[in-house]
Design a protein around this nucleic acid. Structure first.
Lengths: 198, 198
DNA sequence: TAATAAACCGAGTGAGTACTCGGTCAGTCA
DNA sequence: TGACTGACCGAGTACTCACTCGGTTTATTA
């Protein structure tokens, strides 16, 4: 059990860093310090290993987000959104390996032919869309957020933060010191009215 | 020249659809209808072929965008931003293959070790950042856009539209009918003040 | 037309690749 | 103690990959 977990952890790091195709089973075995054939004693093939990894990623991310959201006591829906956006950026550092894996192409390619994989990935995106939508609805009820199409707006927000995170993770640009600017932009996008101070 | 171009076109489609690693030189040759060894007569290896493809993608995208922007006569900076966002979504369909290729991991992996590749990719992103920043500055001058940090805000906008396009292209979600919502969100993010109509 | 060069091909080649198989060894329980 | 089970290994194996090489066809130009 524990050994199996260590395979999952090691393989996840390698898949995230180098990609699925560019990580050979020999690489994984070497990194663990075991024989290549031992991998196939625990997982029937490389693809099953990836699926177990994705399952763990999904569980870890959901658990982490829920524990953070549970602690927070936001005053209204708009503040909830700010909290979620901030949490997402926090996660992209704290769970960097998991995020990097989710920005790889292979999981989505596999999702096209493997329903199990598809479900895992969908559940991750649906989870984030769900908490954003919840905050939007709450904000509309308490008046902190204007009337918007909740589904569409949730997607726009998720796309924005994943897009920014992708830039950061792939080294296209750096997000250092940009978090407040981004949260500000979100608030302006959503708030009922906004008057410029200057 | 022309034959070389047809190799580039065919290989681009395959790399975009299946990824660099998952497209063998045999696949490319078969798709063109020539011998595998002929590829290596025109390109010294598979990597050089990818670089030539990326160069063409960069040229094509810049040319296409510039021709569109040249035609448009926006009334102010904010309208320019809306035009750029709309154009980006138009491109993600008109240049679907090129966009798909730019959402693959391999070009960015290669960029880490190959300066030529890095330059091409950077120039694409810098190009988009440049036209967005230009619109922001114009908007601040004509009063249609509030005072913002131009660099940061340009990145936020580019991240949002690439993030949305990525969702659409990878089949995570569909953008059908969302364009106006997104352009609206951008305008609210940028405009000097906004009063909700309801 | 003859000479030169470029385009193109078929048949390799060696270096990986995921995965298999037969067997060893340690721990568990009757 | 002895039979059984599961973790683990080394040595394969069949296959795919990018790339090479010797030679032939085609185009160009003197």
């Amino acid at each position: 059990m524990s050994y199996k977990d260590s395979i999952i952890g090691t393989a996840m790091a390698l898949f995230a860093e180098n990609g699925f195709k560019d990580t050979s089973t020999a690489d994984i075995a070497k990194s663990i310090g075991s024989a290549e054939s031992t991998l196939f004693h625990h997982f029937k093939n490389k693809e099953e290993l990836l699926l177990k990894i994705l399952e763990r990623v999904q569980r870890d991310i959901v658990r982490e987000v829920e524990s953070h959201l549970h602690d927070a006591e936001p005053e209204n829906g708009l503040a909830m959104i700010s909290g979620i956006v901030g949490l997402f950026f926090h996660l992209s550092e704290a769970k960097r390996v998991e995020f990097l894996l989710l920005f790889r192409n292979y999981p989505y390619q596999l999702a096209n032919v493997n329903p199990t994989c598809r479900k895992i990935i969908e559940s991750i995106y649906d989870f984030f869309l769900g908490i954003i939508a919840e905050a939007l609805i709450k904000g509309q009820q308490d008046g902190s957020i204007r009337e918007v199409n909740v589904q569409k707006q949730a997607m726009v927000i998720l796309a924005m933060i994943t897009g920014l995170t992708r830039f950061d993770i792939f080294g296209i640009m750096t997000l250092a010191g940009y978090h407040q600017e981004i949260i500000d932009s979100c608030q302006r996008m959503l708030c009922r009215e906004y008057i410029c101070e200057d």
